[in-house]
């Protein structure tokens, strides 16, 4: 029970990140990274501002952490050990790119809100969180096993979907919604 309550609390913080994205006219997805019960990083989708469609919330949060850890002088081994103790809470199921990235980093656990039935890499389209999903016929000492992680979906999914809906209906500055003030952006 306590774990479930904690998951909801962290997801609420992720949703705040998603709202932040929406305020910046980005598709509303947000995430937080948690180590030992503490939020150590957060990220929101920045694909429009960066003009780089790979700058998803997960990537933003991960980059902030790596930058911080490198600043502390941690090397690859230290950073890998760190990620192995981190959990990610993200409002929408990680896409195929992010799901693979989280495996590459060796993250411990992922909690997501709504499923991503177009690009989802944690069960919807591919299952990159399952370590067995890569080529099994290639064995040998040189090839490290793909790293899997535990993945739990459906945490505050309605809230995440509601954000998407309001983004598509109102948040988009070009969407026809005359009774709403149109956001202006530079």
């Amino acid at each position: 029970m306590a774990a479930a309550a904690a998951a909801v609390a962290f997801m609420e913080l992720a949703l705040e990140q998603a709202k932040f994205a929406m305020d910046n006219l980005e598709v509303p997805v947000g995430c937080v990274i948690v180590e030992d019960g503490k939020v150590i990083s957060s990220g929101s989708n920045k694909t429009n501002a960066t003009r780089n469609a790979t700058r998803h919330a997960e990537m933003e949060a991960v980059d902030a952490l790596i930058r911080e850890w490198q600043g502390m002088g941690l090397d690859q081994t230290n950073v890998a050990e760190k990620f192995a103790r981190c959990d990610l809470y993200v409002t929408c199921e990680p896409c195929i790119m992010c799901a693979m990235a989280l495996s590459i980093l060796g993250i411990r656990e992922v909690y997501f809100g709504c499923a991503n039935d177009k690009f989802g890499g944690c069960g919807s389209i591919m299952s990159l969180h399952q370590s067995s999903s890569s080529s099994a016929e290639l064995s040998g000492n040189e090839i490290p096993r793909p790293k899997g992680y535990k993945c739990t979906g459906g945490i505050m999914a309605e809230e995440a979907i509601a954000l998407f809906k309001s983004f598509y209906e109102q948040g988009n500055p070009n969407a026809p919604k005359p009774h709403r003030p149109v956001r202006n952006s530079e």
Partner: peptide
């Protein structure tokens, strides 16, 4: 970017 970018990440049906 904004109008198209919306499609990029996620789409509720």
């Amino acid at each position: 970017p904004n109008s198209n970018g919306s499609m990029e990440y996620y789409s509720v049906d």
